Computed example of a mutant assay.
Amino acid sequence: MTTSTQVQLVSRPKGWPTPEDFRTVQVELPELGAGEVRVRNEFVSVDPYMRGRMSDAKSYVAPYALGETMTGGAVGRVTESTAEALPVGTLVLHGLGWRDVAQGPADQFRQVAEIPGAPSSVHLGILGMIGLTAYVGLTEIAHLQAGETVFVSGAAGAVGTAVGQIARLLGAGRVVGSAGSAEKVDLLTSRYGYDAAVNYKDAPIREQLPAIVPDGVDVFFDNVGGDHLEAAIDVFNTNGRAALCGAISGYNDVERPAGPNNLWHLVSKKLTLRGFIVGDHAHVAAEFGEKMAGWFAEGKVVFDETVVDGIENSVEAFLTMMRGGNTGKMVVRV
């Protein structure tokens, strides 16, 4: 028998999740059935959206079931197979998440390319859902035009680091961002294509933002919500557009936060604020994949990861990411 180490949700967090909301278990896997594969994961993804699935509130995706293994993106290699299309040794991407060994029908796994000089985790980041999210938000949602100014909240995170670079490649005239430390601010301008950035912990973002966008903002890519959304509304130019990707600042709130107090600008400036879920835009994946493969091969995009070792440390990795302790994509190396 093959044993799989898996992390399960056992109670729904109230406010910030704690290690006690999870358990690590050993699961014995049965022999493969026809058309199935067994995969040893190399990297598992932890992402902000997972916090929402830990609650039982109605959302765009079903909540995690208590007592079941956490699902999410993972990349690994086939170690046993009864499926002709996925022989042993194939690198695959799947959504079975927080476990070291995954098993199931072959159609739950998708073969991905080996990228010379890059870890397989790149398929969880800039070449995968993270990069696609950034591209969709800028093109399908905000309709970025050449020469426009883009503001990005949570700019040093996985999506934010991709947004800055892709916006530049798509012809943005100026790209600015916010992050939570001086080190991250420096990385934004030295590595990720940002023209300017601020540390939102130095002073309220609403006070800092006008100085770095004296000519206003045309596109806002929001990963944070709350005070950052309010600040962006202040500095939007007429016909500004916001792609609302996330609102991590409020994911662990136990009381309803106050809303922005400047929403009248939506009328006076003729603004568009549109939320989006990347899964609704699968039709863009091929276009993104072709462009990103070219940019990546030409060295026009870079990526960083924050890596936590050991599937048993997935909860620690998730909580660290939620507190902003990552630069770029947070992954668990199995």
Rank of each mutant, 00 (worst) to 15 (best):
F288E: 00
D227K: 09
P214G: 11
D280G: 11
F221T: 12
S268P: 11
H228F: 15
A258L: 10
D234S: 10
L273R: 02
G225H: 07
G180E: 05
T272K: 09
P214R: 09
N252D: 08
N237R: 13
W264Y: 15
A196F: 00
A182E: 04
A211W: 02
H281K: 00
L266K: 02
L271S: 09
D234G: 05
S190R: 11
G294T: 02
N239T: 15
G279A: 07
D234K: 04
D215Y: 05
A203M: 07
G294S: 10
P210T: 12
G294R: 00
A293R: 13
F221V: 13
D215I: 03
D215L: 06
A293P: 07
G279W: 10
S268Q: 12
V224L: 03
P210M: 09
N239W: 07
A247L: 11
A243E: 05
N261F: 09
H265L: 14
L188G: 06
T189W: 01
G279Q: 08
A197C: 04
G275C: 13
K201C: 06
N237Q: 14
V224T: 13
E230F: 00
N252P: 01
V224W: 01
F276T: 12
R256V: 15
V219R: 01
A243L: 03
A182S: 10
A243N: 03
A282V: 12
L266H: 06
K269C: 08
H283A: 15
A242Y: 02
I212M: 02
G259F: 03
G259A: 15
A182V: 13
G275I: 09
K269L: 11
V217E: 06
H228E: 12
V185A: 06
R256Y: 04
E230C: 04
A285L: 05
V254M: 12
G180N: 01
V284W: 00
Y192A: 07
P210S: 14
A197M: 00
S181F: 03
L209Y: 08
L271Y: 10
M292A: 12
A285R: 01
L271H: 09
E230V: 12
L273V: 15
V217G: 10
L188C: 13
M292G: 00
A196W: 00
D280T: 07
A258F: 10
A243H: 02
S249M: 10
K270N: 15
I233E: 00
H281A: 09
C245K: 07
Q208N: 04
L263T: 14
D202Y: 01
V219S: 00
I212H: 00
S249F: 04
G294A: 07
K270E: 05
I233Q: 01
E183F: 10
F221E: 05
L263N: 07
L229C: 05
D234F: 06
A247T: 01
F288V: 08
A293G: 14
S181Y: 10
N239R: 14
R241Y: 02
N237T: 04
S249Y: 05
S190E: 06
V267H: 03
P214C: 08
D253F: 12
N252K: 05
L244P: 11
N199S: 06
K184H: 06
A203L: 04
E183M: 06
Y194D: 03
N199A: 07
G279H: 09
F288C: 08
R256W: 05
G250D: 02
E230P: 02
V217K: 02
